[in-house]
Simulated scan of single mutants.
Amino acid sequence: MRGTTVSPGTEGPPQEEGALPMHRLEVPMPNVLPFAIGTFDTIGAMSRASFPHRHTFYEIVHVTAGTGAHVVDLARWELRPPHLCVLAPGQVHHWEDARGLDGSVILFTDDFLLDHPGDRELLRGLSGRPPRTLDDHAHSRTTRLVADLDDEYRRGARGFETVLRALLHVLVVRTARLSGPGEPDAAPAPAPASAPVRAHAVAEEFTRLIAGADPELWSVRVCAERIGVTAGYLAEAVKAATGRTPGGLIREARTHEAKRLLARTDLTVRQVAHRTGIADPAYFCRFFRRETGLSPGEFRRGGDIHHDHRIPSIADDGRPA
């Protein structure tokens, strides 16, 4: 399970000072699945953590009650239950001034999607969208579906893994159908029919690799070697499937991670540069200004953020990582 699922009480790798906490998925024994479901209370205090952190797993949150805000990457969303929110591995989030938070939390790793690999693309699309507000019909259907997931998980009857994957697939597809402000009622468009199947699979794996926070993977050559294709073929596949170049997508991923670190940590510009794979802070400043129109200092002071959501350094508050 690629080291993303650990038994309760297992210590994770040491956190680098000043880094955003990285949480792994803990699941009960002996039914070790890269999947867990429960309420905010049964999942535990980390499900409502008030300090910025990221996960190695996907998280679907069905909020049924509460006030406050959910801060995801650089966006702050006021809680207006009921709604659904999808988080992808590597995203930074926390709950701000949350009171009376109630609902269900579904956690699973990439490995759990083996029956429906196409759900990865839907989940990535959903993770970049605002929480989906549910009308009465959608809320009722979602509540029943989440209850079925929870029941299968708790009972652990024969074949429950397959049933869980099927129910999760239904939840992902139905969530993708929900529209947000100014969006049509439709799931994300499939890959163009003209794109060869293998090219689309290569492009999808490339997108998955660079979506994390590992600067070692922000290289066309490294990604091509990891996928097992040439850099030229990778460029052709990504261009055919997305209309963009691998280099452009990598610059976007690097810039987004730099924004996360500048907005959610007290790291220095030099440290942010290092964590985004740029050794020279001066070059990092030029790169950041070219990509955003702002210097790192201007961005941190709020030049591109409507509200400063940073909190005191998480390295100082003694909270668990």
Rank of each mutant, 00 (worst) to 15 (best):
E204F: 05
H200N: 12
L122H: 02
D317T: 10
F35I: 06
A189S: 12
W95F: 15
E236W: 05
T4F: 07
G182E: 02
D102S: 14
L164N: 04
Y153Q: 08
T109F: 09
L178S: 03
E59L: 09
E11H: 07
T39N: 08
E252I: 01
S313I: 04
H62K: 07
M46E: 11
L171I: 04
R264F: 08
T109G: 15
G318H: 13
A191W: 09
V172D: 01
S7G: 06
L107H: 11
L167A: 07
D304L: 15
G302I: 01
G247H: 08
T67M: 06
L261R: 00
G247T: 10
R154N: 08
F287G: 00
G9L: 04
F51Q: 10
A263L: 15
D102P: 04
P81K: 08
H83D: 11
R2C: 10
V173H: 09
H307F: 08
T64G: 09
T39F: 11
R270N: 06
G247D: 13
A279P: 01
F112V: 02
E26T: 09
R132F: 02
R124G: 07
A193G: 05
A253C: 11
Q15I: 13
P21E: 14
M1E: 13
A315K: 13
P192A: 15
R221M: 12
E96R: 14
P281N: 04
G103D: 00
S50A: 15
H55Y: 12
L294E: 06
G90V: 04
I305C: 13
R132W: 01
L79C: 05
A157D: 13
G303H: 02
Y283S: 11
W218S: 00
A45R: 08
A65N: 08
A147N: 07
F206P: 00
